[in-house]
Simulated assay, not measured.
Amino acid sequence: MELFDVFATVVEQQSLNKASLLLNISQPALSRKIMRLEEELGVPLFKRKGKRLELTRAGEICYEHALERKRLERKLEQALQGFKAHTPPASIIIGASLTTLQSTLPDLITIYTREYPMTDVKAVTGKTHEIVPLVKEKKVNIGLVASSISEPGLTCVPLFVDHLCLVLPVKHPFADRSTLTIQDLHELPMILFSRGTWYRVLMDEMFHRCAVYPDVKMEIDSFEAITRLVTTCEAATLLPESYLRHTLMENNQLTVRYIAELEQTKRTTSLLYTEEAFHEPSIRQFIDKAMQHYHAEFPAD
Score class of each variant (00 low, 15 high):
Pro44Met: 05
Leu108Asp: 02
Cys165Gln: 09
Glu261Cys: 11
Ile182Arg: 12
Gly143Asp: 04
Leu271Ile: 13
His186Asn: 13
Val167Tyr: 13
Ser26Lys: 15
Tyr63Ser: 00
Val121Cys: 00
Thr265Cys: 15
Val230Phe: 12
Pro299Gln: 09
Leu202Trp: 15
Gly196Asp: 12
Pro89Cys: 03
Ser15Thr: 06
Ile109Trp: 04
Thr113Ser: 05
Leu154Trp: 11
Glu234Ser: 13
Val135Trp: 03
Met118Tyr: 06
Glu263Tyr: 12
Glu151Asp: 05
Thr128Arg: 14
Ser282Asn: 02
Thr56Ile: 04
Gln264Ala: 13
Val121Ile: 06
Gly196Asn: 14
Asn24Cys: 08
Asp301Lys: 13
Glu276Ile: 04
Phe278Tyr: 14
Ile149Val: 10
Glu2Lys: 14
Leu3Ala: 06
Ile226Thr: 11
Ile93His: 04
Val124Asp: 01
Pro88Val: 06
Glu280Leu: 04
Thr110Trp: 09
Ala79Asp: 01
Ser15Gln: 07
Ser26Gly: 14
Lys127Val: 02
Ser194Ala: 14
Thr128Ser: 06
Leu192Asn: 07
Asp184Trp: 14
Pro117His: 08
Arg257Ser: 02
Leu154Gly: 03
Tyr273Met: 07
Ala19Ile: 10
Ser20Ile: 12
Ser91Val: 00
Lys51Ile: 01
Phe223Val: 14
Asp204Gln: 15
Val124Met: 01
Phe4Lys: 00
Cys165Ala: 07
Tyr116Cys: 04
Val230Asn: 08
Gly126Ala: 06
Leu37Glu: 04
Gln14Glu: 06
Glu2Trp: 12
Asp204Ala: 13
Cys233Asp: 08
Asp5Pro: 03
Glu297Thr: 12
Pro117Thr: 09
Leu229Lys: 12
Lys51Met: 02
Ser147Gly: 03
Lys49Thr: 01
Lys122Phe: 04
Thr232Trp: 11
Ala236Tyr: 12
Lys49Phe: 05
Lys51Asn: 07
Ser222Lys: 12
Ser282Phe: 04
Met203Ile: 15
Gln13Cys: 03
Tyr199Asp: 09
Gly59His: 00
Arg74Lys: 09
Leu192Gly: 01
Phe193Glu: 10
Leu180Arg: 08
Ala19Glu: 08
